[in-house]
Design a protein around this nucleic acid. Structure first.
Lengths: 171, 171
DNA sequence: CAGGTTGCGTCAGTGACTGACATCCTATAG
DNA sequence: CTATAGGATGTCAGTCACTGACGCAACCTG
């Protein structure tokens, strides 16, 4: 926030935390990683939420429910997320890491769906699409939080249903 | 292919090309970028393909058509893609760049759809979902090319229609 | 209290990437 | 044909992210 990410050396980051640079790298894999620690927590939250979804629920609704389960965590984090987003927005290297984290979540959700007995191909497709929907909803909510993340999720899933329905009609 | 990406210095890469390291960095932004030059070409191909889709076509079908338009380019590139994929697969830093390129295409497709008159929110959602479908299809085709990329695309879009239809039924 | 583990500091080293400047090559005006 | 401006390349020095090796101190654990 003070000098921009690229202009901040790992030395400075570590010093501000009261440790040496070497110690910083014992806690975080690289300079960027310190800004993406929350992904682990989010993953755990999604695991819990998905576990509490009845087994008979179809994959996409199950993901929708899981995302809703993670809403409190994400909304509670907004004060931090907002600062974070402002830095990421102007730093290509950080945007890259962010999409990498999303991609990692897609892989994770794919495995989680497969564990629920979903066919591997469908699992991958649903994880990819569901994560995309969630990303769009979150982005909208970051831009304007007034409607709430739950509502944005619902809206995005509804829109998915609409665009893919009219898609079907056109075939 | 010979030593692994991480074990290959930029010095070596440049030397193999008959230039100095400094010259390498005048042509590519960083060490990884040399492996992702094709994205620009793909973007141009998608632009052309999207331009030839009638204006009244709905966004998702338009994207489907655009991806089909890029199939020859992608399939023609398979010999190279295959080697590339093998290196990327075992190099996290390259996977990160790859998903970043996909994310860049999502942004690009969002703009392209908006230019067609699609509502901004719907454009983003369709670009995100459509790109996801295309990524899944491409991944399946990379794994087993026997069916052809066109067929994989059709199958993935059909599956999207199915999972989002049953999703609608459940609401 | 001996020994093992864990976290940190120090140091030296590698390699990606950049800015400044010199040089050379080429295209085009004259 | 030649002078010259522009662009591409080489050279050099420097910064900074990141890593391995070693030593030290705190803290369990039996």
């Amino acid at each position: 926030m003070e000098h921009g990410f690229d202009q901040t050396t790992t030395d400075r980051i570590a010093a501000r935390a009261g440790v040496t640079e070497r110690t910083y790298f014992r806690h975080f894999a690289d300079k960027r990683e310190v800004l993406f620690d929350g992904e682990k927590q989010l993953r755990e939250e999604l695991t819990k939420a998905l576990a509490s979804v009845p087994a008979h629920v179809e994959p996409l609704p199950a993901l929708r429910a899981a995302f809703h389960g993670a809403v409190p965590l994400i909304e509670g984090n907004r004060p931090v997320s907002e600062l974070r987003a402002r830095v990421i927005e102007v730093t290509p290297a950080l945007q890259e890491r962010e999409v990498a984290k999303v991609a990692a979540l897609v892989v994770f959700l794919t495995e989680a769906l497969k564990a629920r007995g979903v066919d591997a191909r469908i699992a991958q497709l649903c994880a990819q699409v569901g994560m995309g929907i969630c990303a769009v909803a979150t982005q909208r909510w970051m831009h304007d939080p007034s409607a709430g993340l739950d509502a944005e999720l619902e809206a995005a899933f509804r829109e998915l249903h609409e665009v893919s329905a009219e898609f079907g009609a056109k075939r």
